[in-house]
Simulated scan of single mutants.
Amino acid sequence: MISTFVLRHRRRLGTALVTTAFLVTLSGCSESGPKREYATPRSLCGTAVDAKDLTEFLPAGKKVSTTSATEGSRASRCTVAVDGKRVVYTAQQWWNDMSVLEFARGMTLEKVDQQTDDGRFAYSVNQAFGKTEGCRGNRHEGQVLYTAIQATHSDHEDAAAMKKLITSYTEAVERSGACR
């Protein structure tokens, strides 16, 4: 014969197990936070970009948009916004030949603390700058085409990812019509 004490504890234990199982199931179905409901762009205003590299710097949201602007034949810019908030900004600009660090200083007030060994790229955790090779056209006699990506409104900060993004972006610019 089982005592009343044992029966009461078995019922409580059973109820606790059922409740725990229910809560675990329920938590598995709930949202784990905001989600990215848009497709990451495969180009930034016409310049190809690896969507996987760009995705790291884009937040969750419903809609992504890109807006381009040009300043004559000398500069073009692209703004990437998520739900209307500017997150990533890119630029391609023709300038007299200078180091990529000098170009970066003209584009940002923030410290750009890392540079590649060949001196073509300078970067930090949320912005990067590049110097193209072989982009010297007749319209821009004696000038060099520089690139910039600034994700200063992104929550993601990763110097290695930013270096990878500026390298692939600059290489895409070198293959594009902007280089000629």
Rank of each mutant, 00 (worst) to 15 (best):
C135K: 11
G130P: 05
A48N: 03
K131F: 02
K62Q: 11
S168H: 06
S65H: 11
E31L: 01
S99H: 06
P34D: 13
Q114W: 07
G28A: 06
S168M: 06
C29P: 01
G130K: 03
D83Y: 04
G61V: 08
T66I: 06
C45H: 02
N126R: 08
A104D: 02
T147D: 05
T70Y: 07
V82Q: 08
D155Q: 14
R86C: 08
A39M: 02
V49N: 04
E110F: 09
N126S: 09
E37C: 12
T25K: 02
K63Y: 11
S30P: 00
M162E: 02
R12P: 06
G72C: 10
D117V: 09
A60R: 12
V18R: 00
Q143I: 11
V173D: 04
Y38T: 00
V112T: 12
D97M: 04
D155G: 13
A75V: 12
G130M: 08
S27W: 04
F22R: 03
R105Q: 14
V82F: 05
R12Q: 14
L165T: 05
N126Y: 08
D53C: 05
T67E: 04
R10Y: 07
A122H: 07
I166T: 04
V6F: 04
F103E: 04
R10A: 12
H9K: 05
Y146L: 10
R105V: 03
R136N: 12
Y169H: 02
A151Q: 03
R36T: 04
V144W: 01
C179Y: 08
S73T: 13
A128V: 09
P59L: 13
P34H: 10
F22A: 15
Y146C: 01
E71T: 15
T66Y: 03
A69V: 09
T167S: 09
N138E: 15
V64R: 00
W94T: 12
R36I: 00
M1W: 09
